[in-house]
């Protein structure tokens, strides 16, 4: 799962700490999401998208090849 959080955040001059506080998660979670290491839940995904004022498709992009059924493990 690719995302544009870093770009959207930079556009709004928002720090990771600020974003984390606004969506109610830790800064490490934002770092992990930005690095594509952690795939957020649908709820958190919507919260982030709503905060940036865009649709969830504009923030997250699902990649079929990379995220196979065993990708979570």
């Amino acid at each position: 799962m690719k995302n544009r959080i870093r770009v959207l955040r930079a556009e709004r001059e928002m720090t990771q700490e600020q974003l984390a506080e606004l969506v109610g998660v830790t800064r490490n979670t934002i770092i992990s999401i930005e690095k594509d290491k952690y795939c957020p839940s649908l709820k958190l995904g919507y919260r982030i998208a709503r905060l940036f004022g865009v649709g969830i498709d504009d923030v997250f992009t699902y990649e079929e090849d990379k995220d196979g059924p065993s990708a979570e493990e």
Binding site: G24, V25, T26, N28, P40
Partner: peptide, 11 residues
């Protein structure tokens, strides 16, 4: 005052 646990921490 900080967020102690979120979904990533829980996971």
């Amino acid at each position: 005052k900080e967020v102690i646990g979120d979904e990533r921490v829980n996971k």
